[in-house]
Write a protein that binds this DNA or RNA. Structure first.
Lengths: 125, 125
DNA sequence: TTGCTCCTCACGTCACGTGAGGTGGC
DNA sequence: TTGCTCCTCACGTCACGTGAGGTGGC
């Protein structure tokens, strides 16, 4: 696969792919001229990277995870991340509720709305 | 309020508060010696900032939002963000499902698990 | 007087984006 | 031969964190 094929399949930029290669997350099978060539399964690796990034893993953490697979060690990291994800979903739902109310609110200034202020109090009690 | 009071109430670092001040998100009421002093309602502003950050607004966007309030203009931005938040919640739930399954999976290598690969296919179809 | 937290630069980090100038395949 | 995308630096961006060296209130 050429880099343009990978870009089309994933929507990732050349800079992103270069960056992942530099960090050792993906590899090339070689070059044709100066142009990088990739194995077909690079898309699977990129999908794992995307999935893990959404979960809040840093690229360095993802490198560790990929290296530890298929060992048992990464399961500890995974369990910790599930709790983090749940927390972040709760945060997002709280934020969405705050904005939704602010839109529906009839107060001239949201900062004077009791419902909105109640949401703020949850942020910094 | 002293900066240490603000730090205790919010858990934010001095560097963060300096950064917000530099961007014009918060202001001081003056100084005692070199030490910054804050009005009580700075905590409300910081709560709004935290809420908006969780929603995916950049600090520059938040500055615009705070400036436009209580005008009607910010409502357009808010509506767009609600859709984004919903998307990100879906992403997180997908990621959580992927990890949860990977933990429960009996396959020696997750990359060989059909259920996990089905999740990857959703990332880059 | 002794700590303590505060202060101001300045540079580092993370995950890339963005030109600047140049090479190679179709 | 003409474009086109690719290439390699190098520097920029965003939201801070982290010393380094110094000042001021309690």
């Amino acid at each position: 696969m050429d880099i343009s094929d990978v870009r089309k399949r994933t929507g990732l930029s050349a800079a992103t792919l270069h960056h992942y290669e530099e960090l050792g997350l993906i590899t090339t099978t070689g070059r044709v001229g100066l142009h990088r060539q990739y194995a077909d399964d690079v898309v699977d690796v990129l999908a794992v990277i995307a999935l893990c990034q959404r979960s809040g893993f840093s690229l360095h953490e993802i490198r560790e995870l990929l290296a530890k697979r298929p060992g048992a060690e990464w399961k500890g990291l995974a369990r910790a991340k599930i709790a983090e994800i749940t927390q972040r979903i709760n945060d997002l739902e709280q934020a969405r509720e705050g904005i939704t109310h602010a839109l529906a609110c009839t107060s001239p200034d949201i900062m004077r709305c009791h419902h909105f202020r109640a949401t703020l109090d949850e942020v910094y009690p």
